Simulated assay, not measured.
Amino acid sequence: MMRAPNQDRNSSGSKVGILLQRSFSTVVLLGLLAAALWWNSEAGYYGLVCVFCILSAWEWRHMLRRSRKASQPNLSFLFGAAYPVVLSLACCMTKFRETAPTQETPFLIPFPLLLALAAPVLLVIVSFIREMKNPVVGSRALRSVGTTLLSFIYPGWLFAFSILALHLAYMKEGSVHPAVVMCVLWVILVTKMADIFAYVSGFLLGGRLFSRKLIPHISPKKTWEGILGSWVLTNAAAIGLIFPMFGVSVLSMPQILVLVGCISFIFLLSVYGDLAGSLVKRSLDVKDSGALLPGIGGIFDLIDSPSFTVPFLWFLLAFIG
């Protein structure tokens, strides 16, 4: 079936417009990151993450109320807004130290990590208690508690692991460790580059090599050409960022191969994180979580993929630290 010429032009123009909007939003976000790096303080880094998490929690509340799905949107927003702030305060007050276990304290868990583990547990308990006042109607109570917990964990609680990762940059006297900050920033940039390059590659090559879409029932616009093209471009750009961000002058072939493996792992998590966001929105019958970022949507749409990659960075930093 042939398309009318004006339809093709409208479709192409729409894609170009979205690409320009995404580029503008990306420049604004990069400006915020640059400002935080220029300030180079705990307050700046933690504050930026808190703003993203709080706005994402607010968008979750709006999506849940609009969809009328079984949930407790006000409770999840309360936890989603308070948690990153309390976590930031805990990190500021208790600098991370490598403390050897003793007989009195054989297992020592840093307070910020303990807080991170306790938050979703407390939310489950409170949401169950609140749900007990309602009559039992099928599986509504279970869906309400599950959705409330999900709206707190994804992406806000997961993305807040960037606070815990940055916390590792402040050793003993609280002096900043630039390499750790650069690691966190590099992972976030690689994650978002995967999203942007997937859109650009899909825009330029989508449908020319493969007739089948990636996962059309979740994200109809994602193509195999976009994913493959993004993987190549993301690897090239991510390796290129290593030189200015970490002061590296040369990379050996084994180092490049290790980097390609790490970047590919981040890329894979990024794709699934973005698809998870699409799955949530499709389940709630909404197109975008918000309209704060032209071409992107809301803050939820911005941090959905980094919420899959940042926690793994924290595990790596904590393990090798």
Rank of each mutant, 00 (worst) to 15 (best):
F77V: 04
P84G: 05
E42S: 07
V86P: 01
A43P: 00
G80V: 08
V51D: 05
L37N: 10
S56G: 13
L87H: 08
M63N: 14
L78E: 04
T94V: 04
K69W: 04
W60S: 10
S56K: 02
A43K: 09
A36L: 01
R65M: 12
G47A: 05
A90P: 04
K69F: 04
F79R: 11
G31A: 08
L29R: 01
R66T: 13
S14R: 15
P101A: 02
V85M: 10
S67A: 15
T26G: 11
R68E: 14
G31H: 10
L30M: 13
L55Y: 11
L32K: 08
V28Y: 08
L32I: 12
Y83L: 00
L75R: 03
W38S: 10
F77R: 00
A34C: 05
F77G: 00
L75D: 03
K69Y: 04
M93A: 10
I18K: 15
Q72W: 06
C53N: 11
I54Y: 10
V85L: 13
S41N: 09
Q103H: 08
M93K: 06
V85N: 11
S56R: 01
A70W: 10
S88C: 04
R68G: 09
L87M: 10
L48D: 09
F96R: 08
S23W: 05
V51Y: 07
T99S: 10
K95F: 06
L32R: 08
M63Y: 02
P101E: 01
G13E: 14
L20D: 07
C91Q: 02
A70Y: 12
K95P: 06
A70G: 04
G17I: 09
S23V: 07
A36D: 03
E59C: 02
K95N: 13
P73E: 07
C92R: 12
W38D: 07
L55K: 09
A90N: 10
L30A: 14
L29T: 15
A34V: 00
W39D: 04
E59L: 03
Y83R: 01
S14V: 00
V49G: 07
V85K: 10
E98N: 11
A36K: 00
C92T: 11
G47W: 04
S12Q: 14
L64Q: 14
T102H: 08
P101C: 01
Y46V: 02
T99L: 13
F52C: 15
G44S: 08
R61Y: 12
L19A: 15
H62M: 10
L33K: 03
A90F: 09
A100G: 01
V85E: 06
F24K: 07
A70P: 12
C91W: 02
I54E: 04
V16N: 13
R65G: 10
C91T: 02
W60V: 07
E42F: 03
A36E: 02
L55F: 11
G31S: 07
T26I: 12
G13W: 07
L29V: 15
E98M: 11
I18T: 15
L19C: 03
L48G: 06
Y45E: 01
L75Q: 04
L37V: 04
L64F: 06
